[in-house]
Every structure is written in C-alpha cells, then in structure tokens.
Design a binder for these strands. Structure first.
Length: 570
RNA sequence: UGGGGAUUAGUGUAACGGUAGCACAACUGACUCUGGAUCAGUUAGUUAAGGUUCGAAUCCUUAAUCCCCAGCCA
C-alpha cells in the first residue's frame, strides 16, 4: 500500500491500466468484471478479488460487469446465481447493466468455433478421455497427435454439427483446437473446446448438447463484453497464451477483428487461522463443525455478514492490502482492524453484562429508579444520547471484580472505589459467598454527589465499569466467537492426520443469560452495536420477540487481557 | 533432469538507477467517564553470492526457496 493512509490505491495492475489509458488503448475505456461460477458461496478471498476489479473500474471511471461463468451445467445451480448476486450487492459493488451469463454467448461462441474449423484450426476428436490424457504427454515429454487430427474440414463440420444436434452420447467426441502437441505449455497441446453433455442447464434448459470448456469460453466472454482488463488468478498465467491464440485465430483473415482483452494475473491470498477453499469449508459444514455456510465463524460472505462484519470494513481491508503476485498470507488481525475501525465510527454503544455478578448498593434507597443520560456514540455526536435506568440492585461483569486483585488490576475489589459508567462512584464494602467459597454478590455504598459519573471534589478513580439495572435488564443469548482454528495454518498437519482436528473447540461460546440494558431490546436482526468495554455485536436472525441473540463480531482491544496473557498481571 | 511466475521488518505492501517509506502486529509513554478510541514514540527489512555503475531493492549472471501447470472442472 502506498505511503499516505488515504492516498489512492497504487499497485502494479493500476499502473498497467493507467499506462494503457495514457497510450489511448481502447479509447481510454476501462471495463472489468467478476466472473464467478455459480457453484458455491463467495468468501472473503473473493471479496478482495471483487474489490480489485470493481475498485479499478471505479478509480478509472470505467464499468464493471457481473458475469456468471455457467459453462458446466453439471456443477452449477440457480440458487447460487441468486445467492452470489446478493453477496456481491451486499459488498457494495454495483455492476453495470444486467447480470450477464456466459451461456448467453453460446451461439456466438459456436459460430467462432465453426470459423476455426473452417480455417483448419479445430477438429473433432473421437479419442476417449483416457486416450486424450495419454496422448497429452507430460511436462517433460511431448504429446502425440490424435489419429483424428487431420480429419477433413467438411467431416469436422458435419461431426460438430451432429454433436450439437445431440446425435452422440456424452463423452463420445470433443472438439479440439489444433495447435501443437509438443508445446512446452500443456495448455497448448490441442486443448478441448467442446464436450458433449446432455444436461439441463439452469439458464438455457436443454437447448444445448455441447458445452464450451472454460479455456475456450472465458476469453471470448471477455471479448464479447469488451472487457479491457481481465483480472484473474496467477494460475491462469499459463493459460494466457492460449486465450491469445484463440483470439488471434478468430481474427485471422477477419475484416473486423474481435476485441482482444488484456489479462493480468494476481495472487490469491490466504488468511491465518482459516481455510478458504470449498474443499476445506465443505467438511466443516457437512461434518457439523459449524452450523452451516452462514455460520458466523465461516469466512464466507454470508457468514461474515451474519457475524456483523461490515462491507465497508471488508472494502478497506481489500484496498489497503494491495495487490501482488506473491501468495500472501494476511494476518486475521488485519481484517479485524478494519472492522473495528469502521464499527467504532458507526456502532451505537450499549451496556451489556455477559457474566453477571450481582451488586447491591446498600445506601441507595430501596425501590428507587433513576434514568441516567448516556452517550450513544462518542465518535459521532449526531448519534445523540439515551436514558439508562439505574437502581439499587445491578449486575456488573464478573471479571470486573477480584477479591484479591493483582497489581495491575484496576477494577473493583474490597475497599476500592470505581465509577459505574454514566452513574455513580461506588465503593465495595463486602462480599457474599456461597458454600463453595465463590463470590455470589457484592455490596457497595455509593456517593450521591457523583451522579452522572463526576466527583465534584475532583477525586479520580482508576476504573469505569459497565453495569445493568437488575430490575430493567433484558435477558439475551450471546454467542462469542473465537478463531476457527488455533493454528496459523490449519492445513499444515502431519501426513495422514485429519486437519479437522485443528478446529478450535472454543471457537463458539454460548452465553444463555447475558443482561442487557433496555436500549438493546426491540431491534431488528442485523442491528450492530458495541457492548461497552467488550466488543462489537450484531443481532442474529435466531432472535425471538422475548429473547434477543447477539453475535460477537469482534472484541474491543483489551489491554488488561493482554496483560493477563503476558502473565504479568500479578 | 520441462515450462510459467514470484521473493523488501513478525505479517502485508511502497520505493520504477539517487535518503528503504506506510499499514497491521509487538513494545513504551501521554490522555481518557470504554484498560476502547485518540496522540507521541520504540523495535524491526531488500533471499544469497558475484558483476555493471559515481551510485543497485531496482540492471546482468548464478544459486536458493516458494507458487502454478499433465480435467471432456472453472
């Protein structure tokens, strides 16, 4: 990322796009696209890829397309074309024009294929899958020509036509490009362009019996749409010569050459403590390690959304991490940083006690209730204030009291005075314990002169505690999430060992009876807030009229927790 | 013993032959009615070895390491 925090993004792709613009390529136009296959949900890795393409279109005043790469009806489903649209829209990326489909270009591609056959650049091959594989050779050994490679053009035309008409069973024949079976790049060894598939396509029904292969289709889709900069994964770097070959072959002898996009590859990335590919995510769902694809622990977009992640935070993460060709591993802390940064600006504050400890103020009038003023968001004055009910019996956080406090523990302990946020100073006078010796209740006195939280005599306290009035408390379920895997690289396991063993057994902690101030009640699912001193939370769709359910999106930074971890707390 | 790419603090990413910078993380400290936020500061880097040059992260050579490629998947 460039030096200034708010400087425009700068990376090698943007440099290329800028150069092309300067050179007047494509009339200075910029068109990018995101081309998902509708066969699964998007994850945070896609989010960055989408933001790269969309962000570049935005930065250069270009347009951005959403196009489904639906060339394999065996693997694709309509539900995903709907889900993915929603996911991209949620991210905040707006595509130009309608949602596009590769399958809308099938006719055009077919005609291009006919042209190649007529030019002697493609042929129908009757070899079986196994034979094709065997004939392909290996990276170190050249392949050999198929015996069908030199079929006359007329025969190829006839056979291809009949393939399209559905005269042959699946797998009987394919159409291949005639390039070079000895090429060092395996992708150039007569790649398959069409295979026979008698399948029902989600978008085209049973119109087609032949379906284009990705390598044949993809470049053409970009060409047809006028995509100028076709951004993709580094693994397609080896395919670029093939895409160029196809377009050049089509353009050979053509009066009006078809558009030739420029493909630029960039590295995909990984995150620490998580796995991203479907291969690893699916078992988590199917074997019940998580509750589903939208489990808030999942790196899927629907999971992160449910957890309370904001698209703005994801966008900032995507932009600030830059683009490169090096297979980067980002620390999950960086993702969280951008979530906190955004949430801090927008999340209204609320007080909630996760592990309640009863606190009784002995000198507070029994039965009295006050409404105290609290600030909704110190980072946003326009968020205003609210009233919080206060009474003689309160709940405070168990962690905020220690009978025998270590040196760096500033919170409540016997004889110590602390502030109850927006309320009063209280001093702990005694504790009540059960038979097991656990503290079940603490007693305090309060100083009426400190109403609102300031002492007129100017005396200071070291800590401010959040609290909830017992009488007014709203009971809620709170789900605390931690790393899905404790290991940085969950896939790095010894030969033969099951990587799912690395799933963090404490990745979910359910608190059934948290106490919240009334302001947290009556909200709609998706509502985000900060529980003061604890973290950012988001109301889950599992909530009912009587029982809200909150997901912890991300914790607040916690200096005390860090101190404890260091073991220097006492 | 094939081809294509890549390598800058702990993690990412700038510097495009001319002072190696930024963010996150870590660590200090200030401030604070959130041990949050904010502010100030510290630690820490060019994969290695040669060469070209007044000057190299940048150009050249060699080596090392990592990623990708033998689907009728995308």
């Amino acid at each position: 990322m460039s030096g200034e925090p708010n400087a425009p993004a700068r990376d090698f792709i943007r440099d290329i796009v800028a150069q092309d613009g300067k050179a007047g390529k494509w009339g200075g136009k910029v068109v990018t696209r995101f081309p998902p296959e509708p066969n699964g949900h998007l994850h945070i890795g896609h989010a960055k890829a989408i933001w790269t393409s969309y962000g570049i279109a935005q930065d250069f005043g270009g347009t951005f397309h959403l196009r489904f790469d639906d060339t394999n009806p065996l693997k694709e489903e309509q539900t995903y074309v709907e889900a993915i649209q929603e996911e991209v829209a949620w991210l905040g990326c707006r595509w130009d024009g309608p949602v596009r489909f590769a399958s809308d270009y099938f006719e055009q591609m077919y005609h291009y294929a006919l042209e190649l056959i007529r030019k002697g650049k493609a042929y129908v091959d009757d070899l079986s899958v196994e034979e094709i594989r065997a004939y392909r050779g290996s990276p170190r050994e050249p392949g050999k020509n198929s015996p069908y490679r030199d079929r006359p053009v007329e025969e190829n035309l006839d056979l291809f036509e009949r393939m399209k008409a559905g005269e042959f069973p699946d797998g009987a024949r394919v159409l291949r490009a005639k390039i070079d079976m000895a090429h060092v790049n395996l992708n150039m060894r007569d790649p398959v362009m069409y295979r026979i598939l008698h399948a029902v396509h989600p978008h085209r029904g049973d119109e087609w019996c032949i379906y284009p292969m990705y390598d044949w289709a993809h470049g053409l889709e970009d060409s047809i749409e006028g995509v100028t900069h076709s951004l993709c994964d580094v693994s397609f770097e080896n395919h670029r010569p093939l895409y160029n070959w196809f377009i050049d072959a089509i353009n050979e002898g053509r009066d009006e050459p078809i558009h030739h996009p420029r493909q630029i590859e960039f590295a995909r990335y990984n995150l620490t403590h998580t796995a991203m590919s479907k291969r690893y995510l699916r078992p988590l769902v199917e074997r019940g390690f998580v509750r589903g694809w939208d489990d808030p622990r999942m790196p899927t977009l629907i999971g992160l959304r449910r957890r309370g992640y904001t698209p703005e935070g994801l966008r900032d993460f995507s932009r600030h991490t830059g683009v490169s060709k090096y297979p980067a591993v980002f620390e999950i802390a960086l993702v969280e940083h951008f979530q906190r940064r955004h949430l801090n600006q927008i999340a209204p504050r609320v007080m909630g006690v996760l592990r309640p400890l009863k606190l009784v103020i002995d000198n507070y009038p029994d039965g009295q209730t006050e409404q105290l003023d609290a600030i909704n968001n110190p980072e946003d004055e326009s968020a205003g204030t609210r009233k919080v009910p206060f009474g003689r019996v309160l709940y405070i956080e168990r962690d905020d009291f220690m009978e025998e406090p270590p040196k760096k523990f500033f919170r409540l302990s016997p004889g110590r005075e602390v502030r109850l946020r927006y309320a009063y100073f209280v001093t702990c006078t005694s504790v009540v314990k059960n038979d097991a010796g656990e503290v079940t209740e603490i007693h305090c006195t309060y100083d009426p002169a400190t109403r609102g939280g300031d002492a007129p005599d100017g005396r200071k306290v070291k800590a401010t505690l959040h609290w909830v009035s017992a009488e007014h408390a709203v009971e809620a379920e709170v789900r605390l999430y931690d790393l899905l895997f404790t290991k940085e690289d969950p896939l790095d396991v010894p030969e033969g060992e099951d990587w799912t063993k690395g799933v963090n057994p404490e990745s979910l902690t359910v608190i059934p009876d948290a106490k919240l101030e009334p302001a947290a009640a009556g909200r709609a699912p998706g509502w985000r807030c900060q529980f003061e001193r604890l973290g950012y939370f988001c109301l889950d769709p599992d909530s009912t009229e009587t029982k809200p359910v909150f997901n912890r999106t991300v914790t607040l930074k916690d200096a005390w927790a860090k101190e404890q971890k260091k073991g220097t707390g006492d």
